[in-house]
């Protein structure tokens, strides 16, 4: 225990630790570090849970899969409608141009 550098080391490390000494007792607060922590998918989605890894159970995964398939079908449906409407609009434009030319 006599080594000065050892005492210096203890002092340096002690100074850096976030310990509070009150009436001969020590206390500190452990800060939760969200790194490398898993979070449930629903907690992440609805409760804004923080974590590096998102965990979801099988039923939630199937629900998400079905929802995505439904949305993809919807996208396809609206894509088709948009295409028909574009063609109709184009034809109308052509007709208007023809009428204007003939008139």
């Amino acid at each position: 225990m006599a080594s000065n550098t050892f005492i210096e080391y203890l002092k340096t490390v002690a100074k850096k630790s976030d310990v509070v000494m009150e009436r001969g007792k020590i206390k500190w607060f452990d800060r939760e570090i969200p790194r490398h922590r898993a979070v449930d998918f629903l907690d992440m989605y609805y409760l804004d849970g923080k974590g590096d890894y998102v965990v979801l159970d099988r039923s939630t995964a199937y629900e998400i899969k079905e929802r995505m398939e439904f949305l993809e079908r919807e996208i396809l449906k609206y894509k088709k409608r948009t295409m028909y409407l574009s063609i109709a609009l184009l034809m109308m434009c052509v007709i208007v141009v023809i009428i204007l030319v003939l008139w």
Partner: peptide
Amino acid sequence: RESRRQWYILNELVKKFNRGLYLK
């Protein structure tokens, strides 16, 4: 070791004996 703050405790004990810290 860091999470136990053990070097802080040892440093305090080096300075002065404290029964509470000694038990820890």
